[in-house]
Simulated scan of single mutants.
Amino acid sequence: MSAELTPEVVDFLSAGTRTGLLAFTAADGRPLAAPVWFVVEDGALVFNTGATTAKGRALARDPRVALVVDIAEPPYAFVQVQGVAETSEDPGELVRTATALGARYMGADRAEEYGRRNAVPGELVVRLRPTKVVANLAVAD
């Protein structure tokens, strides 16, 4: 266990179009989880979400979250990143991150389309800074 993303963990998180499952706490204390598109940048996991979504409201109340990425087939693997989320509404960062997310998940030919579509007022850039990383990159081995 570590508080940093090792090169092996970054490779795992960055492979293909794996999505993350973000765990957060609802206002009434219930645990919730939602899928997110993300990229790894400068030792953090970066994603976008709306400020008024359940995720956005939860982050405003309590920035402590966890994000899990897994492979659900042999050799089975997972990474759990626990940490503190920082949010920004900077328009330039919104366009840049939304475009990067569009490129990863929809392909380079649609990156700008998704960047424009998702970088609108009311959206947030979220940077999940790890405080603990748990990884098992070969569960079945």
Rank of each mutant, 00 (worst) to 15 (best):
L13V: 14
V120T: 15
A34V: 07
A27I: 00
P91K: 04
A44C: 15
A33Y: 03
A66Y: 02
R96Y: 06
V40T: 10
D109C: 04
E73Q: 11
A85H: 00
F24I: 08
F38S: 11
A138V: 01
R61E: 03
P35F: 12
L94V: 07
N48P: 03
G115L: 14
A108Y: 01
V65N: 08
A3H: 08
E93T: 02
R18I: 02
P63K: 00
A85M: 01
D141L: 02
G16Q: 07
A54C: 15
G83P: 04
R117A: 15
E89I: 12
K55F: 09
V126Y: 03
G29A: 11
L59W: 08
L124Y: 01
M106W: 03
V46S: 04
A58T: 04
V126F: 08
A119N: 10
V65A: 13
R57N: 14
S88L: 08
L137F: 12
P7L: 00
V69L: 11
L67I: 00
M1H: 07
F78Y: 14
T97A: 02
A23V: 06
R18H: 10
R104H: 10
V139E: 08
A15F: 14
F24L: 03
E112H: 05
R129K: 12
R96M: 11
V9Y: 04
L13Q: 08
E93A: 12
A100K: 10
Q82T: 11
Q82W: 11
V139L: 14
M106F: 13
L5M: 15
D70L: 05
R30V: 12
V36Y: 13
Y105V: 09
E41D: 12
V126K: 01
A119G: 15
V68W: 00
L59M: 11
P7A: 01
V84M: 13
A140T: 13
D62H: 06
V68M: 06
T49R: 08
V125L: 04
A98H: 06
A135V: 08
A23F: 05
D109K: 05
D70Q: 10
A66D: 06
P75W: 07
A33D: 02
A51R: 14
A111P: 09
A44G: 12
A119Q: 13
T17F: 08
Y76F: 10
A111I: 12
D28V: 02
A23I: 05
A3I: 09
K55L: 08
A34W: 01
P130E: 03
R96A: 13
V139F: 14
E112T: 13
P31Y: 08
V120D: 14
A72E: 09
G50K: 00
E93S: 10
G29N: 06
V68L: 09
E89A: 12
A111N: 15
G83K: 01
E93V: 14
E86V: 06
N48W: 03
G16D: 15
R30D: 15
F12T: 03
